[in-house]
Lab assay of single mutants.
Amino acid sequence: MPVRRGHVAPQNTFLDTIIRKFEGQSRKFIIANARVENCAVIYCNDGFCELCGYSRAEVMQRPCTCDFLHGPRTQRRAAAQIAQALLGAEERKVEIAFYRKDGSCFLCLVDVVPVKNEDGAVIMFILNFEVVMEKDMVGSPAHDTNHRGPPTSWLAPGRAKTFRLKLPALLALTARESSVRSGGAGGAGAPGAVVVDVDLTPAAPSSESLALDEVTAMDNHVAGLGPAEERRALVGPGSPPRSAPGQLPSPRAHSLNPDASGSSCSLARTRSRESCASVRRASSADDIEAMRAGVLPPPPRHASTGAMHPLRSGLLNSTSDSDLVRYRTISKIPQITLNFVDLKGDPFLASPTSDREIIAPKIKERTHNVTEKVTQVLSLGADVLPEYKLQAPRIHRWTILHYSPFKAVWDWLILLLVIYTAVFTPYSAAFLLKETEEGPPATECGYACQPLAVVDLIVDIMFIVDILINFRTTYVNANEEVVSHPGRIAVHYFKGWFLIDMVAAIPFDLLI
């Protein structure tokens, strides 16, 4: 008679799926529990143990900040960024110097990925580790590398530091407007667009060049630039800015003055950032001319202004700041037409079709709590990747769950009947059967004279019903998954307890 339990259901295979997918890609990662103190490590794979030199037993239950890997060259700011990422709910990448158990130093890129439950609360953290440099290539500990984003994938490793954006290309926007319009339909740009040429040739750093990471940081200074100062900065030398009595002219307006920039070969870094931020506020060169004239017309309804409409929906549905990093990277690809469009465009503009998908598509409701890094690593669709929660398995109709209350009560009843059979069957065979043979035949009273025979008949009927119930009862397979398919249940029961239950259900007393 089957006594099969499996009270692990309803099970959740999400954690096993993450481990299996990460292991298949030869990654070095740990999984931490966000619900406990210090976000203790609950799993670390073999790749991480080989990377740091510690065994799994030495890593388990330690804080996922990996303070046991810190050393003299470990930056405090990087460690603080990892700790801050564990307090938030967004994906974050941090470069930090770690030390192995043998004392060797290596520069590592740590990717902190939160995993949320159905309520939107962070319950786990996945920390992925990628070695960037070994100890002989690690720089000085005073050099802070965590304020910069990861290198873009479309640049060669040897040319990542030679990417320079020439400031004269930004200063000569109005001069290039006529050349853009003359391109017409034969050019790649839309009317009114501004073409910015980027020099990728390796050259020595000069005062006129600005690194790509500095251009990325310009967006942080746009908020500090007032509207009046932006307007004066875009007017140009024809209309000098008016300053109040006793007030000095704005240095932001002076930063885009061609006369002032041409007199000296070098520009201050602050002026460069502010000038680029001011130019980015204009949607095209037409807006710059309109600002000089004193009238700013409404933005025209053409394809170039609607190019950012799908980007707005993608940004609203993005799951991490990696989408913004990807957008900034692609927006700086050289030799393309940049349409400086305000994100607050007309909502009635139709979304044009684009061959290049900048932001990841909208994630469906079932995966809105899973970050983009987890979705990318697992390579699963929205119909396959579940949320991290207890999910009731989908069972067929008329199927009994093996952990249901009805099955528990039924098993206790069958257990009592088995005990009765084990006690009274030998007793009936030894004593009652002998008395029946010696006594007179009682054929007239039937079952009324033999109450134990009636009980034995009921017990046999219950055993037959138990066999039928076992054909529709779920079970737990070797992978700790609840199986509810009727065919698989029948095959599993035939290979197991079916023969024993059938022999126990045969009414031998009635056959004798």
Rank of each mutant, 00 (worst) to 15 (best):
F68R: 01
A217Y: 06
Q11S: 10
A78P: 05
P237Q: 05
R176P: 15
A203F: 06
T152I: 06
T17M: 07
E357R: 05
R273P: 12
K28V: 12
A142E: 14
A40N: 07
N128W: 06
S278C: 12
R273L: 11
E50K: 10
P2W: 06
V222S: 13
R27H: 08
T13C: 13
M137H: 15
W154D: 15
A285G: 07
R242F: 14
D286C: 14
H7M: 11
S207Y: 13
D321I: 08
A142I: 09
S272Y: 04
A172W: 04
N369T: 12
P299V: 05
S207D: 05
P202S: 05
F22I: 06
L170E: 08
V215N: 10
D102Y: 01
E214C: 09
R366M: 15
F98P: 01
D111K: 08
C265H: 08
S179F: 15
A290R: 04
M60Y: 14
S354G: 14
P114G: 02
A160F: 15
L378H: 01
T371F: 14
V113N: 08
T162N: 15
T371N: 03
G24W: 07
A175C: 09
A282I: 11
P300S: 07
P63E: 14
S239F: 09
E357H: 15
P237R: 08
A83E: 09
Y54W: 07
H147A: 11
S320F: 12
L378A: 05
E134I: 04
W154G: 05
R301F: 01
E372K: 10
I288S: 11
L210W: 15
G24V: 06
E230Q: 10
N12Y: 15
K101N: 01
V370D: 07
P150M: 07
T13P: 08
I31F: 03
R62Y: 09
A121L: 06
S206Q: 15
E274W: 15
G226K: 05
E274G: 08
F125T: 08
T371Y: 08
P114M: 01
G184Y: 07
S182T: 10
N317F: 09
T74Q: 01
L343F: 13
Q75C: 14
D119F: 09
Q81F: 10
K135V: 07
L165Q: 13
T319G: 08
C49K: 03
A307C: 14
S322L: 07
V3Y: 09
E118K: 04
A285I: 11
R100S: 04
G149F: 09
D119Y: 06
L107D: 07
R164D: 13
E130Q: 15
C108S: 08
W154F: 12
F22E: 13
P10N: 12
H254A: 12
K373F: 14
T65R: 06
P241G: 12
T216Q: 05
S331M: 05
L225W: 15
D111S: 09
E214W: 04
D119N: 05
F125L: 05
D323C: 05
R312M: 05
K332S: 13
D111H: 14
E23T: 07
R148V: 14
C64E: 01
L15G: 01
G294I: 08
R5L: 15
S140E: 14
A260C: 13
S322D: 14
T329P: 15
G345S: 07
R5G: 11
L15P: 05
